[in-house]
Design a protein around this nucleic acid. Structure first.
Lengths: 128, 128
DNA sequence: CGTTTTCTGATATTAGTTTATCATTCGTTG
DNA sequence: CAACGAATGATAAACTAATATCAGAAAACG
């Protein structure tokens, strides 16, 4: 059981994660939350992320070759797009993977899950 | 590093990578090559991987939430399957991602590349 | 051979991420 | 409003991955 108090830090951190357009890294969360709480410590960010995960409010997102990112739980099955220019990660609504869970591929691989990341340029970076 | 000598270490490391069924981590490469060269140092593995990449013989493979893996270059566009039981990574021949390079998704995301990892159980682990 | 010079192996070092520690702050409750 | 205790912030410490160092081993080549 986790006793949780309503602190400014916790509210700012959770707010930044929930209102983000995609998963955020620890340093991104720290940077954004620091805008309203300039003395916010990085340890508090790590601690709060840990409790928010235990409470099921956020989930971790693993991207190839990067540190863990975190986003709101309950967004359902979706994937991510990483922009090569602004280096931000965005949630996508589409799932272009044509392999239902339980499919067995040639070679006998029984697929239960998949992780897809798309790369390119986001709309605002394409425009410039 | 222009001059490359044919050492037992280099041959063993390259052989393990080229003959693998999928990309290998540094510790996996070290473990497998150590079977024939018991005194092989981990630094030699890192050094050899670096030169093999510079020569274009191998490429790095990034898997979500894992250290870099390495496999033979020139295997073309493909994806990977990670077995939850034996924890090995296998190359797949299929590409079930229905997004050609250059596609623009809703939201204006211009997709140029993708990275897909499938998860489940491999044939030998399903059998047991 | 024998000389030259790269390569190796053991270890130290660097770099990055995450957790632990602890005095202080501050949210909560009666 | 007082007091208890969880949360914070600064910092140290722990881990892991990757590179640097350097004496000695061993390819390459005349």
């Amino acid at each position: 059981m986790v006793i949780v108090r309503r602190t400014k830090q916790r509210q700012a951190i959770l707010n930044k994660i929930l209102s983000a357009e995609g998963p955020l890294s620890v340093s991104q969360i720290h940077g954004r939350a620091s805008e309203e709480l300039p003395r916010l410590g990085i340890a508090t960010v790590y601690r709060t992320i840990k409790t928010l995960r235990e409470e099921g409010e956020i989930v971790s997102v693993e991207l190839p070759g990067e540190e863990a990112h975190y986003e709101s739980a309950g967004r359902g099955h979706h994937h991510h797009f990483r922009c090569w220019s602004c280096e931000q990660v965005f949630d996508l609504g589409v799932c272009p993977v044509g392999i239902p869970s339980g499919t067995t591929l040639p070679g006998g691989y029984r697929v239960e899950e998949h992780n897809l990341t798309l790369y390119g340029r986001c709309s605002s970076c394409v425009a410039t």
